[in-house]
Design a protein around this nucleic acid. Structure first.
Length: 486
RNA sequence: GGCGCUAUCGUCUAGGGGUUAGGACGUGAGAUUCUCAAUCUUAAAACACGGGUUCGAUUCCCGUUAGCGCUACCA
């Protein structure tokens, strides 16, 4: 453990202009994992300086998504919209010490110059013409009511270098950068100003964020230097792409993490999947057991997570692998922990189980090994939790269309009601003897019984199902089969 | 266009100057079975291309190509 003076401080700083998307969730997860691994502090900061596009609902949604994935935070959420004073002060400090200046160019002028530069085949970049306006002149003009923005004065020459925690040494020529805007004419800061002012004020030691910010970083490094501050460690995460290898977005379907919850994904599965997207433990996996394992508990992830294992290239989101993780996690759940999640699904379809909690838990245990998705419990598995369920038409057609079979199932229902000892062995014996007696293949009766009992052509072993449902339910559903019209 | 980043099976990845280039998901085949999963066995599947450096390059260097990102008074 590091001493408190050098302990890490990491933040997740989403902008509430949308829900918590997959990329944001992974950034949050890696930041959180890093903070927990190093015994540091995890701060949540909402970057809502774009009032037009930000909304309180999105903030709620982001927090909901983080909680769903099991992430907690030690400080915040802080809102940049409530910290405007800090940014204004930082901007004037920069102006006072000559690192920034007021710019009186209008949007229209800027726009015109940009388009003519583009036409001329020149890289459009602010020419720095307002650099020559003295501070006293600028103040006078502002006092007279002129609108101004504050720009950072980027050195014309030299290079800006930083050591990225993922990509290593990154160098940009200052000549490539333009005098970027710090404060807009309405006094609201731009991203570059607010992010640096806050990260400094909140004493961040590590900035973990998407690689889309890599090109922004030299500007921010320049800001740190102008402010006389030492640099945090920047660690940029490669992006997550959709199946078509373009950036994951709405057109790829669900990109909000909560959409995955709604699709029946279990949070641990999603967290595990996300953790291994663009990161791999390498040799550290040996610390927690088999080196080839891909299933890691949250505690294990915290133990073995490190910036070193972060990939340098973008990763494609793989729905099949997510589905596999979901299957694995659902199977491994303790039934009593799975039950609340299933109850949410039931609630969503207005279903209430009529069986006792013990019976419900037993049914879950029986069903777990063959569940791929939480939704199964609220659809094809309903027959295990009460008498309110739908008969799958195709299954009925396939296995119950023979009236003779239906009649036999009814008779079997009578006989099972009379069974003294109702067990897997006794029900199987009953059915097989009855089949032999009637000269019908046991399989035909088994398939028919399965549909009569579960409404589905697919189910666990029939006799395990019978035991799970109980003698009276089995008897009545089999007897009902005799009266069925297929 | 400029700048930056990246490049191992279809996908996620391990590896690293000499390896049968390893694993996972998915896919094919077989076994098992009362259905379907599961399970077990098994198979196919990759170092983008071209130059260097070197005894030797998939690994290091350069270039090409491709992909992605940034290029706002968005974040």
């Amino acid at each position: 453990m590091t001493s408190s003076s050098q302990s890490t401080r990491v933040r997740f700083a989403p902008s509430p202009t949308g829900y918590l998307h997959v990329g944001g969730a992974r950034t949050a997860l890696f930041s959180w994992l890093f903070a927990r691994h190093t015994g540091g502090t995890f701060v949540l900061r909402i970057e809502d300086t774009d009032f037009e596009r930000s909304s309180a609902d999105m903030v709620t949604g982001i927090l909901e998504g983080m909680r769903w994935l099991g992430m907690d935070w030690d400080e915040g959420p802080f809102f940049q919209s409530q910290r405007l004073e800090l940014y204004a002060q930082t901007a004037s400090k920069l102006v006072e010490c000559g690192h920034a200046y007021h710019c009186f160019c209008t949007r229209e002028e800027l726009e015109a110059r940009r388009s003519s530069a583009t036409e001329a085949g020149v890289v459009p970049r602010y020419d720095g013409r307002c650099r020559t306006v003295s501070i006293t002149d600028a103040k006078a003009r502002i006092a007279a009511g002129e609108r101004a923005i504050v720009r950072f004065m980027v050195p014309r020459e030299g290079v800006t270098v930083f050591q990225d925690g993922v990509f290593g040494r990154i160098e940009f020529a200052n000549a490539e950068l333009e005098d970027f805007v710090l404060l807009r004419s309405d006094g609201i800061p731009t991203y570059h100003l607010s992010v640096v002012a806050d990260d400094l004020d909140m004493r961040m030691t590590h900035i973990i964020r998407g690689a889309d910010h890599l090109s922004n970083t030299p500007k921010q490094v320049l800001l740190y230097q102008a402010l006389g501050a030492s640099l945090p460690v920047f660690a940029h995460l490669p992006l997550i792409l959709g199946p078509d290898k373009t950036r994951l977005s709405k057109r790829h379907g669900a990109t909000s993490v909560m959409a995955y919850k709604e699709m029946g994904i279990v949070p641990e599965a999603f967290r595990n999947f996300l953790a291994l997207l663009g990161w791999s433990p390498g040799d550290a996996a040996k610390q927690v057991g088999a080196p080839d394992r891909e299933i890691f508990s949250t505690e294990e992830l915290i133990q073995i997570f490190s910036l070193d294992g972060i990939a340098h290239s973008n990763a494609v989101f793989n729905n099949e692998k997510l589905a596999w993780y979901n299957t694995e996690y659902i199977r491994a759940y303790d039934p009593s922990r799975l039950l609340p999640l299933i109850e949410e699904e039931w609630k969503a379809v207005n279903y209430r189980p009529t069986r006792s909690r013990e019976d419900v838990l037993a049914a879950i245990t029986l069903l777990q090994p063959r569940t791929r998705n939480l939704k199964d419990f609220a659809s094809t598995f309903l027959a295990y939790f009460g008498d309110q369920f739908k008969m799958d038409e195709a299954a009925a057609k396939k296995f119950l269309s023979d009236a003779a079979v239906r009649t036999m199932l009814g008779e079997l229902g009578d006989r099972s009601a009379a069974l003294g000892d109702f067990s897997e062995a006794s029900t199987e014996e009953l059915l097989r003897c009855y089949a032999a007696e009637k000269g019908i293949k046991a399989g035909a009766l088994i398939n028919g019984a399965r549909v009569a009992l579960t409404g589905q052509a697919v189910a666990p072993s029939l006799f395990a199902v019978m035991l799970c449902l109980g003698q009276s339910t089995v008897a009545s559903r089999l007897k009902a089969a005799a009266a069925l019209i297929v």
